[in-house]
Design a protein around this nucleic acid. Sequence first.
DNA 1: TTCATTTCTTATCTTAAGTGAACGAGTTAA
DNA 2: TTAACTCGTTCACTTAAGATAAGAAATGAA
Lengths: 193, 193
Amino acid sequence: MQDILFDFISKYVSLTEEEQNVIASLDIFRSVKKGTILLKEGQKSQEEYFILQGCIRKYYIIDGEEKTTAFFTEMEVLTPHCVKNNAPSEYFISCVEDTILTVTNPDMGVEINSKFPKFELMCRILAEELLAKQQITFDEFKTSSPEQRYLNLLQARPDLIQRVPQHQLASFLGIKPPSLSRLRARILEKNKV
Amino acid sequence: MQDILFDFISKYVSLTEEEQNVIASLDIFRSVKKGTILLKEGQKSQEEYFILQGCIRKYYIIDGEEKTTAFFTEMEVLTPHCVKNNAPSEYFISCVEDTILTVTNPDMGVEINSKFPKFELMCRILAEELLAKQQITFDEFKTSSPEQRYLNLLQARPDLIQRVPQHQLASFLGIKPPSLSRLRARILEKNKV
DNA sequence: TTCATTTCTTATCTTAAGTGAACGAGTTAA
DNA sequence: TTAACTCGTTCACTTAAGATAAGAAATGAA
């Protein structure tokens, strides 16, 4: 199970056996049931997540309505905003599926960084990489119609469309469930002809 | 002029006089006329920008149509995606106004980082900060209607609405110019009653 | 100043998304 | 088994955005 974590890390820095042992001894792995809420609006938290298996989602409740803005699946990292600014969270995080993840906090990061400076490097590379990816994703979202966004998603993360409830997917695409239904019908119609 | 740069840096790390002198001697300041294109689609570039005064914008040309996805103004940093992946750029960058900016490249960064390790730290903090800000902005965009997005922008960056042409603003908001006009008329109408 | 160009708004029509309600399928609980 | 619930889809209707064209206002150059 923790091999997934080491695979991920090895994309950025290489670890000695000793370093691997230190990490393995940290007891950061947690298993959570589908539907579990990891973070609530208004709550303060210092927990950062790395998904080993499963899927979690981030959503706001605005005017009593859930607005899903992101999904995180295998090999993805989520540091809630409230960890950075130490303020109450504006959003929720919950498990879409039974999920296995690591739970860490910034203090542990500091400790590991002081023992193994290469982690500092990894963090910077990771942050820059995420930032770049995020910017491309944002641009793509802005420059596309809902229908195009759905088609893009079908290309980029086809698994999501299978594993996530439609109403969450709709709000992730910035539309309402009926619109998603019609949009899919429209696409099917086009492909028939 | 370079005081603006030092003000910016001092938000993250403090510089000795010697360090300031090294930076001042680098000859990185450039003045560019409104309309100048700093980066073209298809072009490779290693230039990173920091705006001291003025405004630049990032836009794609999709189906012959300009799609503006970001504006950068005073005290903001822009590292084009192509600098990171050394691939041809997918987008353009041009000056909305006469602009004064610094132009640097990653090699200079490496050199400065080796002389003054505190810059490494600044880069990581900056990347993380930008990432966090970007995520909030993205969430806000996704969870809002065009009208709400316009109102948000009016709050967050009122200057932009004055200094940027309407058709660029429209595409930045993810809509077409006529829609922006109507939307503004709608808002005025509501406020009258 | 005048003319041409660009920029912004307005109007019309078309298309698609929002809303509320209804329906059926599948699930859960009594 | 039935009743209640959730979820996805569909329908009818409303609202707003896209496409296009035309007109008004601002800008720049001769």
